[in-house]
Simulated assay, not measured.
Amino acid sequence: MVSSPGTLHQCILGRFCLRLFEYFKSRQLILLSAPFDVRLPGKDQSTADEDVLSVVQPDICVCEESKLDERGCIGAPELVIEILLPDYSKTELHNKFDLYQESGVREYWIVQPAYQNVLLFTLSTNGKYIDSKPATEVLHSVTFPDLTIDLKEIFS
């Protein structure tokens, strides 16, 4: 049996959700948090259920309303946020990175509580992630240019 994320993880998740909800509530995008299924078809596949190759439950995702159904999100979210647990597997992290990149997730944040930083990856026009230097004080989204998050508030 896998244990639930700890208190620090849940506090960070809640702080991100609170901040992001305020930002996305006036846009045509929906903020969702785990447990919530994201069904990802293979590259260049339709978003029909028979084309789904992977199902993930990111800590936070932001999806277009048109991609939502009763079972979750089908297709790539606009933003995925994963908060690393202390005992995370580097293999799992690498696999999710590749999966999100191949599926077309526009922006992917990896939150590292142990280092109090966020790694931000943005999908380029050639379908590969471009990374930025780890954000330690203020996070500036590339996909949503007017979205900034004070990380001191997140990690306090």
Rank of each mutant, 00 (worst) to 15 (best):
M1D: 06
V2L: 13
V2P: 11
S4H: 00
P5T: 02
G6F: 01
G6P: 00
L8I: 04
L13I: 01
G14L: 10
R15L: 08
R15W: 07
R15G: 07
C17F: 04
C17Q: 03
L18P: 00
L18F: 14
R19Q: 13
L20Q: 02
E22L: 11
Y23L: 11
Q28H: 02
L29R: 06
L29W: 07
I30D: 05
L31Y: 02
L31N: 02
S33M: 04
D37F: 07
D37M: 05
V38L: 14
Q45I: 01
T47R: 14
E50Y: 09
D51R: 02
V52R: 11
Q57N: 10
Q57D: 06
C61F: 03
V62Y: 14
C63H: 01
C63Q: 01
C63D: 04
E64T: 04
E65H: 07
S66L: 10
S66M: 08
G72Y: 03
G72S: 04
G75Q: 07
A76W: 01
E78H: 03
E78A: 15
V80Y: 13
V80I: 15
I81Y: 12
E82D: 14
E82H: 07
L85T: 05
D87N: 13
D87P: 00
D87C: 03
Y88H: 15
S89V: 05
E92G: 11
E92S: 14
K96F: 07
K96V: 05
F97M: 12
F97H: 12
D98I: 05
D98H: 06
L99E: 06
Q101N: 05
Q101C: 12
E102M: 10
S103L: 12
S103C: 15
R106V: 05
E107K: 03
E107L: 09
Y108W: 06
W109Y: 11
Q112F: 07
Y115E: 14
V118D: 13
L119R: 15
L120W: 06
F121W: 12
L123A: 08
N126Q: 14
N126E: 15
G127P: 01
K128Y: 08
D131G: 09
D131F: 07
S132V: 04
A135D: 03
A135R: 01
V138D: 11
V138R: 11
H140Y: 12
H140R: 07
S141N: 06
P145Q: 12
L147V: 08
I149G: 11
L151M: 13
K152L: 15
E153R: 05
I154K: 05
I154L: 09
F155Y: 13
